[in-house]
Design a protein around this nucleic acid. Structure first.
Length: 158
DNA sequence: GCCAACGTTGGC
DNA sequence: GCCAACGTTGGC
């Protein structure tokens, strides 16, 4: 079982949007970065848990938990010229881009903000990929220890 | 809105 | 294969 962190801009698709989706699930389409694709295609497994992170917003941070409910399959939006993430070079016979399905698990009692996570960047979270300088990857791995530590913050005062 | 970081593209 | 130009991400 692996743990993940997935970013989403709440203006685009928020954790609340996931909660309101039919059956509280969605496909994670539109990923067009090879490293993020490789994580989805090669390492994400059904039932893995995901920190849902809000980026590019007033209070960036982890807002809730989602679950992988379907492993990687071709991202059909890559073949749709009308789609924002259309990729002319993607061939259905040899898919380049993949997506997974995720479902809403639960909202955290409080948002664990980026600035709060940074307080531990020299110690418990020193290897957290999200905190690496300049990291823009939309899907990153979270270790078992990092997952437990971040969850332990949920019930602390700040 | 600014801008640093960084992935991708394409000319050579 | 190098690398400059360009586009995107995302915190602030």
């Amino acid at each position: 079982m692996n743990y993940w962190l997935m970013k989403s801009e709440p203006n685009d698709f928020s954790f609340e949007d996931l909660r309101k989706s039919p059956s509280r699930k969605t496909h994670w389409d539109g990923v067009r970065n090879y490293q993020a694709r490789n994580f989805m295609r090669d390492k994400m497994k059904k039932d893995d848990l995901v920190f849902f992170y809000h980026s590019n917003c007033a209070e960036p941070g982890i807002i809730g938990i989602a679950r992988i409910i379907k492993e990687a399959y071709p991202d059909h939006t890559a073949y749709d010229p009308q789609d924002k993430h259309y990729d002319q070079k993607s061939d259905p016979q040899n898919p380049r881009w993949f997506m997974v399905d995720i479902s809403y698990e639960r909202k955290l009692k409080r948002t664990i903000t980026l600035s709060e996570l940074r307080k531990y960047s020299d110690d418990q979270l020193k290897d957290l990929t999200l905190l690496r300088r300049g990291n823009r990857l939309s899907i990153t791995e979270v270790s078992n220890d990092e997952w437990s530590f971040i969850l332990s913050l949920e019930h602390s005062d700040d």
